[in-house]
């Protein structure tokens, strides 16, 4: 008897409908994916679901009060709200360049928070 489970892949805008089937030996088969990333996503989603997280942090001396930032790799889903709480305490100073690593190894995940854009220092 095989069991199955449906997932929508979030890797790209195509949003493939994936079916994960388990056979008697708990071997997994993934169907419905149009590329390799779909299979990887399905496997990860079952064991260690992760998401790219984008947010903002306060910035001093920039054109705006907030700087958009993002994780540089998918971040463990279970820790997202801890990450958001942590970001409240962060303040960056302009200038910043896109890709600058602002926080290394955030919450001991090995993942970094990087600046999503340049922001010059203004007077």
């Amino acid at each position: 008897m095989t069991n199955s489970q449906n997932l929508i892949c979030v890797t790209c805008p195509r949003g493939c409908s994936l079916t994960i089937s388990y056979d008697d030996q708990d071997q997994i088969t993934i169907t419905g994916n149009q590329c390799k990333r779909g299979a990887a996503y399905a496997k990860a989603e079952l064991s260690d679901p992760r998401r790219m997280i984008a947010s903002t942090v306060r910035i001093r001396g920039g054109i705006h009060k907030m700087l958009p930032i993002s994780t540089n790799a998918p971040f463990p889903k279970g820790k997202i709200m801890n990450l958001m709480a942590f970001l409240k305490s962060v303040e960056i100073s302009a200038p910043v360049k896109m890709g600058d690593i602002l926080i290394e190894n955030v919450l001991n995940t090995g993942i970094a928070m990087v600046a999503s854009r340049n922001m010059e220092k203004i007077d």
């Binding site: 903002t56 942090v57 306060r58 907030m66 709200m81 801890n82 958001m84 709480a85 409240k88």
Partner: peptide, 10 residues
């Protein structure tokens, strides 16, 4: 403001 220590429960 966003990122306010008081905003949100987390």
């Amino acid at each position: 403001e966003t990122k306010n220590q008081r905003s949100g429960q987390c």
